[in-house]
């Protein structure tokens, strides 16, 4: 199987698994009472679970770790999206309000992707005191040994 075919299979498997997991969480939200909890399940980790399981099976744990670090940034954007969307829905209606709030998500994740290469925890846990700022200072790997 060629590399391109393998990548297409990976995307198709993620799509199918994502659809199934979203249905599973939607069914859970439907069955659950009180109904006011339905909103919480709109932000369930359904797509994440499906995608991470397929990623682990095809690409391995290092890619799952990288995906989880990216997801931390996406989830911060999701939280801000929700906070902004409530007043925008009231002002502009469902479609326009929800789409306008999506711009906030886009800006937050773009900034987060640029500023936090190791995810939210990496910034805190991997900074070496006294080392210069920048992506190299955030790297988990030890610095290469200097020739004596």
């Amino acid at each position: 199987m060629g590399e391109m075919t393998g990548q297409i299979v990976e995307v198709v498997l993620k799509a199918l698994a994502g659809g199934v997991f979203v249905l599973a969480f939607a069914a859970l939200a439907e069955m659950l009472t009180p109904k006011r909890l339905a909103g919480v399940f709109c932000a369930a980790p359904s797509v994440a679970l499906a995608s991470l399981i397929v990623t682990a099976g095809i690409a391995g744990v290092p890619d799952v770790l990288a995906s989880a670090r990216g997801m931390q940034i996406g989830a911060v954007g999701f939280t801000l999206y929700c906070l902004i969307a409530v007043p925008l829905l009231r002002r502009w209606g469902a479609w326009r309000g929800a789409l306008a709030a999506l711009a906030v998500w886009g800006v937050v994740v773009a900034i987060g992707h640029a500023l936090a290469p190791q995810g939210l925890l990496g910034v805190r846990t991997t900074t070496v005191p006294g080392s210069p700022p920048g992506p190299a200072a955030l790297d988990l790997a030890p610095p290469p040994a200097r020739p004596s």
Binding site: G39, A44, V86
Partner: peptide, 17 residues
Amino acid sequence: DVRGATFGALGLIGFAV
């Protein structure tokens, strides 16, 4: 529902961490 999803989104940060 969006207000409820705010709590779900905060939970997603916990999930990813």
